[in-house]
Design a protein around this nucleic acid. Sequence first.
DNA 1: TTGGGATGCTTTAGGCTTATAATAACGCTG
DNA 2: CAGCGTTATTATAAGCCTAAAGCATCCCAA
Lengths: 178, 178
Amino acid sequence: MTTAIRAQVESVPEETVSGQGTDPDADRAMLRTWLRMLACTNIIEGRVRGALRDNFNTTLPRFDLLAQLDASSVDAPDGLTMSELSRRLMVTNGNVTGLVNRLVNEGFVSRVVFPPDRRAQLVSLTPAGKRALDGMTPAHATWIREMFEGVSPHEQRELYRLLGRLKQSALTPTGRAP
Amino acid sequence: MTTAIRAQVESVPEETVSGQGTDPDADRAMLRTWLRMLACTNIIEGRVRGALRDNFNTTLPRFDLLAQLDASSVDAPDGLTMSELSRRLMVTNGNVTGLVNRLVNEGFVSRVVFPPDRRAQLVSLTPAGKRALDGMTPAHATWIREMFEGVSPHEQRELYRLLGRLKQSALTPTGRAP
DNA sequence: TTGGGATGCTTTAGGCTTATAATAACGCTG
DNA sequence: CAGCGTTATTATAAGCCTAAAGCATCCCAA
């Protein structure tokens, strides 16, 4: 859940006139915004995790993997290799190995060697996996909808826009090496 | 890093006139916003993790715990109990047990029984822990600042406000039981 | 054709996190 | 003051995640 710091945020000398360079007030504001975003994410993610566990006896990473396979079936109808899957899920190869092992055991995905390259394997949803995913998807959308209910459509658009700016900014390698 | 879903987000029948109830377009927008927020959080958190590891050979949970103890020294000068610490960090008790064990081994926190209640223990920063934290805090602020650099102060305030609305909304137990 | 670097994947070791169960101390009530 | 529910903490089992090392295969160039 990765939270807190707060020290620098909640209590900071009211006017620590910085010799030069950066504004401590601005720093404090950024930290506050970051912590609030972290809190939001953790709250929502935690609720989704719990709901997946309670309603479908599964986990978020498994759901994500199934959803990714389904989404990818458009541009890769025969499935994805482990590497491609790990890239799309933005996790390491080793992580995907374990996840796929479990999902294969559960019968939700299949993993077959890719003849043209015997190192690689194609992972795809089984019919059971597709059914399971289709059962979870509407519920998932509902949970998200409920949690966003108090944010008006206009505010949501604005939030989306601002998060886009932030994402861009966070990805930009400001300081050192490119 | 918990990402993806995308299926429902990127590709959704253009006009799936829902019998009644909810608007699929609105659902899609919410999902998009949620995924973008998740991406932002993961990017920032990942960079902070990496920076903590590379620069200070430590982890985010450890840093959080130290920061929390420091922040709490105002209202709890003698330290926090394990339970109180787990509440403030918003993680389980068992989690804090392991974390504190490691930090005690590293000499950054002390853990002593609390005489009035022999079940409890008071955890506090050692001088070495305080020094370590003070060394990390400015760097941490710098990393966050750099990543937020592309978001104007005005946009940041707006983002902060919207996240507040979202947090409120996500915490409200809409659907079922209170 | 054969050597060697690149690529795909798994394994390993270590840490984080949770839920659940167990243990210990507390504190109240009868 | 004895029993019992509550609270503080730790132990355990399972899963998620990473970095780094290792193995198999591929592919190219000498």
